[in-house]
Design a protein around this nucleic acid. Structure first.
Lengths: 336, 336
DNA sequence: ATATTTACTGAAACCGGTTGCAACAAGCTG
DNA sequence: CAGCTTGTTGCAACCGGTTTCAGTAAATAT
């Protein structure tokens, strides 16, 4: 807990060497006599020396911090990724600084500006809406990893799950269980994931020769409230359906509640599938069948990749799989 | 998006003044001729100058960053507070750095060390286990705000809710609804909140002249899984009970699921109350009666207070109320 | 008119590291 | 033994700001 005002000069004096030598030992980027090295390290140890980040940053240009732009702190999926990012950086010497883009392109550019002003060594973008051009510019300036969406030409620097196939699998699961009238509550349709998920849904229907019924396509905004609204409007219109595929788990919670309020049972009367597999989904009633996105892992992987990138290496990003978690919110349709 | 390598020297040249004058204009801590000032500001504007944080930090000792120690990223309540903290700092010029203490005293001290090495200007501790002595030491070194627990002698620097009265109210609500055999699934009992909540529970029982039955006191660890375990063990022992007060909402989810698995209905057969009011609780089935902790607000308030503290002022911290949210997981007992 | 403030500005030291370059000793080569 | 590496180290410049201190010109006091 001791705060030390011990500088490199103190170490130098204590070890009877020059500041330069101490610096060399600390960064081992030059050959130092093993004995000298030992002496210096002892001095460092006994005085509890900790380098001043500012001095180091000023002199070297490196800051040992990375900027992480998230979109909405408190949203389950982004939180998972943040958790992963922190995890991925612990022990590497880099500290993440988190900023919130709030799903606003201008805010996002603003906060990135701030981060650059803070001289971060690298950037992790969790989702986000900024233009391809700005992204490309960014990449020229500093190591950057994008998480949660794929960007054209950025194959090596993107960590994302295949939303299309996740949605396809989910929809297909419903179809296999005998469902034909499958409603979808979509996400915000200018988000890539929302689009991909819708495409996966449409493809699965098409592959099963089920015509996509526009009346069964509802729009939402990833919140539970929007799930409630969507189901209510569906019910109001008297559309018949036996299953709902939701943009994410929160929407699924809302949808389930809205159904229950009308006396419609899940899954006996209507089946529900979500997307994300947030922590609560295993424990709600009924436990939610959903597509698991490995948010934490994505964060970890992104952090590790960025470290490699910042150290001048290249990184191999694994493909992340979205896998269907079958639980109890889907039931088999008994053919009449 | 432009990255600028423009230094104070460039501004000085452009404005035909010295570096010192530019610095004075930028920090306005000395009288500068309005005309000179104008010229400098124009130069700053037109060149898009942004001060180098390292140089500034090195010279002034201030870093404009604050350290935030959380306990578990991804845990709903801490996430709410983090969200609030970020919110509270936006626009103040300070950036928060988040680190994770992982509920380990030693880790916590470690990460605080790291933060000090990064020369943060202030510290926000979200929860945490470090000793009173270490806390006191810390406070001597730098502005510190503790969130989520009360510390003796730190009245002006703690933001916390009254867990005791929250738990008291929750338990009392159950009593008023006719419950007498009220089980409790406690949190980790060396956490202050867990202790306070238990005390509130005990007091409410005592005030209603209900004897506390040790067999109805179960231990958990704030996870849904521990809620399941607790309920199962309760059921196994054949104890009769009509209500369960849970350490937090996650535990409540687990408890509900375990009951349902045994065919016990909530709230018809057994009532449940949680603590935290996380976002999902309004939408689960049945919507969970719980005690709302204003996590986001607490974060905001903490950030604002710390800013005042760092600027040499003092701060007035409002008392945060934990208020009972009555929803549908509690039912009235019909007296026989 | 001279002395003394007052208002403003610049030179230079300093913050605590990193790094290019010179220096010096020891070991080799011829 | 002179000449040249090689290994190791220190000196000093530099990174880009802040801040002390002295200095100048104008304003006020005497």
């Amino acid at each position: 807990m001791k705060l030390n005002d011990i500088t490199i000069k103190d170490i130098a004096e204590r070890a009877n060497v020059s500041k330069s030598t101490v610096s060399r030992v600390l960064n081992d980027l030059a050959i130092v006599n093993p004995k000298t090295r030992e002496t210096v390290l002892e001095a460092v140890e006994s005085l509890g020396y900790q380098a001043n980040v500012f001095a180091r940053g000023l002199a070297s240009g490196r800051s040992m911090t990375v900027g992480v732009v998230t979109q909405k702190i408190g949203s389950p999926f982004y939180d998972m990724m943040m958790q992963g990012v922190i995890q991925g950086f612990t022990g590497t010497g880099y500290s993440p600084i988190f900023v919130d883009g709030q799903w606003e392109q201008s805010t996002e550019l603003d906060v990135i500006r701030t981060l650059m002003g803070r001289k971060v060594d690298g950037l992790i973008l969790l989702g986000g809406d900024i233009s391809q051009k700005d992204l490309d510019d960014l990449r020229d300036r500093m190591p950057t990893i994008v998480v949660g969406k794929d960007v054209a030409g950025w194959e090596d620097q993107c960590v994302y799950v295949d939303n299309f196939s996740g949605a396809y699998d989910a929809t297909n699961h419903l179809i296999e269980f005998g469902h034909r009238d499958i409603a979808i509550i979509r996400g915000i349709m200018h988000h890539q994931d929302a689009i991909r998920r819708f495409q996966g849904y449409a493809q699965a229907l098409s592959d099963a020769s089920i015509e996509l019924d526009p009346d069964l396509v509802l729009d939402g905004n990833f919140t539970a409230q929007s799930g409630i609204l969507a189901v209510n409007s569906l019910l109001m219109r008297g559309k018949s359906f036996t299953a709902v595929f939701c943009a994410n788990d929160m929407v699924a919670y809302g949808a389930r509640l809205a159904l229950q309020r009308k006396g419609i049972r899940v899954p006996e009367d209507v089946s529900i599938v979500g997307f994300d597999d947030q922590a609560e989904s295993s424990y709600v009633s009924p436990p939610l069948t959903t597509v698991r996105q490995p948010g934490v892992e994505m964060g970890v992987v992104a952090a590790e990749a960025l470290v490699k990138l910042m150290q001048g290496g290249t990184c191999e990003l694994p493909v992340m799989k979205a896998v269907l978690q079958r639980r109890e919110s889907v039931s088999r349709i008994v053919s009449p």
